[in-house]
Structures are given as C-alpha cells and as structure tokens.
Write a protein that binds this DNA or RNA. Structure first.
Length: 302
DNA sequence: AGGGAAATAT
DNA sequence: CATATTTCCC
C-alpha cells in the first residue's frame, strides 16, 4: 500500500517535479528488514529453538533485494557513459510505531542515499563480470554501517560477534572477516569515544546517557507492539562511524560537519600544523565500481 | 571462531 | 601521509 508511482507527464516543462524530498516513502518505507522484527533474543530466552533457518531464508530473499540495493547490481568497466547513479536506499528504521495509529511523526528524511560501490581494479581489471577469485574491497557505505550498528545494538555487546552480526545483517557477499574487521574498528571507535565523552570515571550511570555503547541487551523487546524496544532511546548522540563520503558517485553534496569526529581522529604529528582538520590526501585514485562478487555463483559460504 | 595487529590498498 | 579494509597470527 502506498505505491507512489505517479510519474505524470507534466504538460509543458515540468522539470522540477522533485518532491522526492519527503514525498518519497520508498526508501525506508519500502525496505523492510526482518532482522529487527524478530525477537531473536526472546526466542532464545524461551529456549524455543528459533527457527533461524526459516527466518534467515525468508530474509534471504529480501536480502537479495537489499543486497541489490546496497551493492549495486551490476559491474563493469563500462563506466564510460555517465557516472552511475546508484541511488538505492534502504532503511529499516523501526520507527516508533507503537502508539496509537495517528503517529504523525513520520518525518523521514532520506539521510542516506548512497551507493555502495566496491572498488575493483581499474587497470587490468578483468572482472567485468566475475571476480570470483578476488572479492573487491568492501566499502562500508553509510547504509551498510547503519545496518551494522543496528544489528550490533540489537544484539547487545554481548552477542555481537562477527558471525552473528554477519548473519543478522544478511547482506549478500558479506563475509565474517568483513564484519570482524569492521567490528574491530567499531570497537576501537567506541572505546575512543568513551574516553572522550565527558570523562567521568566516577559515575557509571552516564553509561546510559552518553555512552554510545549499545545497550547491553534488549530483553524487554517487546512483545509485539509496545515495542518498548529500546531501539534508540538512550543513545542520544550516537554517531555512527563517520559517514565518509569520498569520491562517491554522488553529485556534490558533502557538507556534513566533520567537526572532529572522534572516529577519524587524525593523529597529527605536531609540527607546523595544518589548520585543516580535514583530510588532504593526494587522492589520485578515482575509483568507482559497482559490484562484482555476486555473479557467478557463489555468494558467501557462511 | 573471536580478537588483535601487521600488511596493503586507496 | 592518513585511513580503510584485508590478511595473518594467536
């Protein structure tokens, strides 16, 4: 319900029919993830073997879609014509939908519209279609990261181990190593933040207010509707890993505040001191690829 | 496997 | 040169 496919041809020069700003329920609305809908923990707590298999498989299907969106489906050095605009967005915010139906709080702004691009070799690259032997470097796009963070949060630091995370994320092509690596980084990031955020070694209560550390465990989970769902309550300024936007295929828009992301934490070695906290790499790479590994056949032998 | 550090790639 | 992601080692 809710298809907005109104591509009415506007007589005359209706060019700026861009109300996609918020009239676009698609992205987030359409995208339905299942991982957050299933009280995995709960089931476990009850000792009732959660048929993960089924769920996973079920989700798997959706995953393909998601995957497609996330990873951009095709690959090919045919970049020649035009920059590819893989603007696929997928969100699964379980918006506080509890309360009485009339929740007009549906202000969703497509914060992320990214294209997950995997960089492939630009030169002798051959994997036009199948790069089975060599998976391209995975690029953690904001979308992916969001998913990652969400999953980790939902699992609780306790169960947030690579394998589980990977499974819940359900992203085709994602390997345990990928997640493990990212998790490592993420942990480091959290750690750093802990130290920076109101350094108050005496109180532990702030653990809930300023600690970006995902809630240790979601036990209440809801019950279905109320969804007390901790979701994202006590995490006010939980910044995700800086959503890096490098040479993405997005048409200019990087204006985010990179104030001083603790995550990036540039370690300056002193001296002169460039006043520019930004990155000034000599980027000479302009890579832009789409995504290869899914082609032939195998996806991920998790 | 999970975690961490070195090694590379970008 | 810094960072992001991968690979190697416990």
């Amino acid at each position: 319900m809710g298809e907005e496919v109104r591509m009415k041809d506007v007589s005359g020069d209706g060019d700026r029919v861009m109300e996609w700003e918020k009239g676009l329920p698609s992205d987030e609305d359409l995208a339905s993830l299942s991982y957050s809908l299933v009280p995995w923990n709960l089931a476990m707590a009850f000792s009732i073997t959660p048929e993960k298999s089924r769920t996973i498989q079920d989700v798997n299907r959706a995953s393909e879609t998601t995957f497609s969106s996330l990873r951009g489906g095709s690959s090919g050095p045919n970049t020649s014509s035009s920059t590819n605009l893989g603007v696929a967005a997928e969100e699964e915010d379980r918006v506080g939908s509890s309360s009485p139906g009339s929740d007009s709080k549906k202000q969703k702004i497509s914060e992320d519209a990214a294209g997950v691009e995997i960089s492939t070799a630009e030169e002798g690259d051959s994997g036009t279609e199948d790069l089975k032997l060599k998976r391209a470097r995975l690029v953690w796009t904001p979308q992916l990261h969001k998913r990652f963070v969400d999953v980790v949060a939902h699992l609780g630091i306790k169960n947030a181990v690579p394998k589980t995370i990977m499974q819940l994320m359900n992203v085709e092509g994602l390997t345990r190593e990928n997640v493990a690596s990212h998790l490592q980084k993420y942990r480091l990031y959290l750690k750093r933040m802990q130290g920076l955020t109101s350094e108050g070694p005496s109180s532990s209560d702030k653990l809930f207010s300023s600690t970006p550390v995902p809630p240790q465990s979601f036990q209440d989970l809801g019950s279905g509707q109320g969804s007390g769902s901790a979701g994202h309550v006590g995490v006010p300024s939980m910044m995700q890993m800086p959503v890096y936007a490098h040479h993405m295929g997005m048409q200019g828009y990087h204006h985010q505040n990179h104030a001083h992301d603790p995550y990036h934490q540039n370690h300056h070695r002193g001296s002169g001191g460039p006043a520019n906290p930004y990155m000034m790499q000599q980027n000479k790479f302009g890579s832009m690829a789409s995504y290869p590994p899914v082609g032939g056949g195998s996806a991920n032998e998790n």
